[in-house]
Design a binder for these strands. Structure first.
Lengths: 158, 158
DNA sequence: TGAGGTTACATGCAAACGCATGTAATCGCG
DNA sequence: CGCGATTACATGCGTTTGCATGTAACCTCA
């Protein structure tokens, strides 16, 4: 492993550690009685969408298998937090959106959670550093592997 | 939510997105046939320890409940990858370490995985940016909430 | 020293997950 | 059109997870 690769791996490991440490801290909060963090993640993602989205689209944003997501949506629908409607333009698809109750839940939990997040992040980083971190992470997230790169590993010379 | 809190939440969300995007990419690799990513995480953590560690210590580094970790270790022991020994200094504890086979597995998978990690990270970030990211994430990880802060939320005035 | 409390790990059990596969709708192309 | 291939989501099934609790070793203090 050369220096660049080592650097890259150390950076990834640090990101992983930060993620794990903060997730543990957040998970220990007492705000997840009604909604697990994973469920909140789904509601949050839906809350960010101006209009209903497909299950497949939702799946792109959530770290969960497609069947697991499908069933989690089942449960959220059964609890009245999410609405599942057929897609008029594609009979195979379903369109998901928050119900009123779902929005209310998401906002309620979101307010509490945002407080913890703010405290944890500002505890370690200055506003400038937060801006830098956001920018770096955004780069990482927004440049996924191209489909070609996944099958043709010779092409990644940029 | 004031500006600082908003900034902090945006940074956390960006980190979360980066984590999810890269995890998805790595999970799609074909190197997890013998060992799941979570299992690899455990072996990797053990590989970084010069001497055997307690289950509780391992638990601090892994995003998994204590019972789940205990059983995962069961399975890894059954598969001959991890050694579970009684702690001579404390009859309640167990000391965990990699077996030869466990080390070999970890190294084999680790080499392949490190390649993917390096490609994904260097695809989006320059060496300078990788260094920055590592430094920022290390700060986040290394400053956990103090126990007092968890019970006495009035004290976080730093 | 020994009773009560605490810590470290294991176990019972229901819920949730991933993988493989099924079903139904859409697409592509002769 | 119509037939096979593909896409989108759901379901069956064995495995793994988390929560609550159990068990055993340690620690404290009278």
């Amino acid at each position: 492993m050369d220096g660049g690769a080592r650097l890259a791996n150390h950076a990834w490991e640090a990101l992983l550690r930060a993620h794990a440490a903060l997730m543990k801290e957040f998970a220990a909060e007492e705000i997840w009685r009604d909604l697990s963090m994973r469920e909140y993640d789904v509601l949050y993602t839906l809350s960010k969408c101006p209009k209903p989205i497909r299950l497949g689209e939702l799946h792109r944003h959530v770290l969960l298998s497609q069947p697991a997501l499908s069933r989690m949506v089942d449960r959220l629908v059964a609890r009245g937090l999410v609405r599942r409607a057929p897609d008029p333009g594609d009979g195979r698809g379903v369109l998901l959106s928050l119900t009123e109750a779902g929005q209310a839940q998401q906002r309620r939990i979101g307010r509490l959670h945002a407080r913890s997040v703010a405290e944890a992040m500002t505890r370690s980083l200055t506003p400038d550093q937060l801006t830098q971190l956001e920018s770096l992470c955004a780069r990482l997230a927004d440049r996924p592997a191209t489909p070609e790169a996944l099958t043709n590993r010779e092409d990644h010379g940029l």
